[in-house]
């Protein structure tokens, strides 16, 4: 069993109108099964409303499946006594950088998780320092979060999770509210965690450029997994991605257009270099 394993996970909630009468049932996650190995870099793609964020919240025991089971490091998220253990093993970073920073000083925010876990003060300081260094925010440790850029705030949030020494980090659209520079900073930090620290990363996003380096990609639609494979396998299906309200990187799209015109090119080109090599010039 991998670090995160979902077996036929379904999440339904009841919609009510203003008077509280039942209007209907929405299935936000629809029979999803997946198995994520330790140390992998996983990307979950999907348009807004595809159920990807709801699925992510299951990995941190914020939500429990209405049907099926989800295990984090072998622990069933439905079992109450494991909740805190699970939240420590699988940390979570959310979309809005302003709404997840609790401390008024960067270092105090990073220390929040370890404080909750009851770690002794001296060790908290060590963890805070090493986490801030890992995301390149150490020099900002005395700053107020309100004065940081969006990308910097998200890196502080990542450090805050890192200080809890998780085995796996789930990032729920961490770059959706950032500008291109901020996005690059955050993605670089995330890749560093995976490459250097060997932490399992589950990145939820709708930016296609961010998933090129993933080991495996899941594409979600209507709560279910619509596609799964390596980035190359996914990007070779341009038409299908368009149907799922998603995009492909411009270079992939260009190769696809050239191929349509009759040029002999392989499917799923991901970088400029690959395109030039394939054009053989």
């Amino acid at each position: 069993m991998g670090i995160i394993k979902a077996d036929d996970v379904t999440f339904e909630y009841i919609r009510r109108d203003e008077e509280g009468n039942v209007e209907g049932i929405t299935t936000a996650v629809d029979h999803v099964s997946l198995d994520i190995k330790k140390g992998q870099f996983i990307a979950i793609l999907g348009h807004n409303g595809s159920g990807k964020s709801t699925l992510a919240k299951h990995m941190n025991a914020i939500l429990y499946p209405t049907e099926g089971t989800l295990w984090v490091d072998g622990m069933d998220t439905k079992e109450e006594e494991h909740v805190w253990e699970i939240r420590q093993r699988a940390g979570m970073v959310f979309q809005n950088p302003d709404n997840q920073i609790i401390g008024q000083v960067v270092e105090e925010d990073v220390g929040f998780g370890p404080e909750n876990m009851g770690i002794p003060s001296k060790e908290i300081w060590e963890r805070v320092e090493e986490s801030l260094r890992a995301v390149g925010m150490y020099e900002f440790r005395k700053h107020s979060p309100n004065k940081l850029s969006g990308g910097q705030k998200q890196r502080v949030s990542i450090a805050g999770v890192l200080a809890m020494h998780p085995q796996c980090i789930v990032l729920d659209e961490p770059t959706a509210m950032l500008d291109p520079n901020g996005r690059k900073e955050v993605i670089r930090a995330i890749r560093g965690l995976n490459d250097v620290e060997g932490i399992t990363v589950i990145l939820i996003t709708h930016y296609m450029e961010e998933i090129i380096y993933a080991d495996k990609v899941f594409v979600m639609d209507k709560g279910a997994i619509a596609m799964e494979g390596t980035p190359r396998e996914i990007f070779s299906q341009v038409e299908k991605l368009k149907e799922l309200r998603l995009d492909v990187p411009q270079v992939t799209m260009l190769a696809y257009e050239l191929k349509k015109k009759g040029m002999n090119l392989p499917d799923g080109i991901l970088t400029t270099k690959e395109l030039i090599d394939a054009l053989r010039i």
Binding site: P180, P249, Q250, V251, L254, L275, I276, I281
Partner: peptide
């Protein structure tokens, strides 16, 4: 800290390759 669209880079790279 800004970038042109990716196609701009592709076209320039192709030109460099001759």
């Amino acid at each position: 800290g800004l970038s042109a669209p990716q196609v701009t880079y592709i076209m320039h790279a192709l030109k460099e390759k001759g």
